[in-house]
Write a protein that binds this DNA or RNA. Structure first.
Length: 213
DNA sequence: ATATCGATTATCT
DNA sequence: GATAATCGATATG
């Protein structure tokens, strides 16, 4: 089934993010990440997230304390934390909780709604069919590249302000069942079930379960 | 189909 | 100096 273009969409307020990361991660599913607000807008629905709980979560970057790299995590909720990993990829988080408390949510996968062609260009790939769409935004590194997210450009950006280059909106979409699993790609606290995704959604990252045949 | 590995750099020990 | 919240290419069953 084709993705539905969001009609009336408004930015989530700061209070939405000023809660425990676990709660925000779950409730962000079905919301929309938007790049720009003008004519060539990029928009994609959030279908997979992970919660990082702050200084006491050994898997969180905040466990290293408030440094030049992680300072956004220790600021107020609703701001973009962008980091560079493996010498190749940027990843996008949103800060949660409140000033001094460093919870965050990592965006792991999106379902493209608007601007697929521009996303493909940013990814250096081409779309030949619906089968190619997940390659645009399925995985934290991929979605960041599709949206042109870099640390220099987006770290510290206010995601609750629809006039900023990058923001998070609500369009009335109500998702289906939410599934929970351990977080991906980490070694510490690897048994904590802090990954959330829309069950059965084709854009969730990782191995696909072959649908029969 | 799954498994392994190289890329490439900011950050921390 | 080692590691990392990843990806894509290549090798192998």
């Amino acid at each position: 089934m084709p993705a539905v273009i969001p009609k009336s969409i408004h930015a989530l307020e700061r209070a939405f993010f000023a809660r425990p990361a676990r709660t925000v991660a779950r409730e962000l599913l079905g919301k929309v990440l938007v790049r720009g607000g003008g004519t060539s807008r990029l928009a994609a629905r959030i279908v997979e997230t992970e919660a990082y709980l702050g200084e006491n979560d050994p898997a969180a970057h905040a466990a290293a304390g408030n440094t030049a790299r992680t300072s956004v995590l220790f600021g107020p909720a609703g701001f973009a934390y962008v980091y560079f990993i493996y010498g190749n990829h940027y990843c996008l988080n949103v800060s949660c909780e409140r000033e001094g408390k460093a919870g965050s949510v990592l965006f792991r996968a999106l379902e493209p709604l608007e601007g697929m062609e521009e996303m493909a260009r940013a990814r250096g790939t081409e779309i030949h069919g619906a089968k190619d769409l997940p390659k645009l935004t399925s995985g934290p590194g991929r979605l960041a590249q599709a949206f042109g997210i870099t640390r220099a450009r987006d770290n510290g950006c206010d995601l609750t302000f629809s006039n900023s280059g990058l923001w998070i909106g609500e369009d009335g979409f109500r998702g289906g069942k939410i599934a929970v699993s351990p977080r991906i790609g980490i070694l510490k606290a690897a048994d904590e079930r802090l990954r959330f995704f829309l069950a059965g959604n084709a854009f969730v990252s990782g191995r696909k379960t072959p649908a029969g045949h």
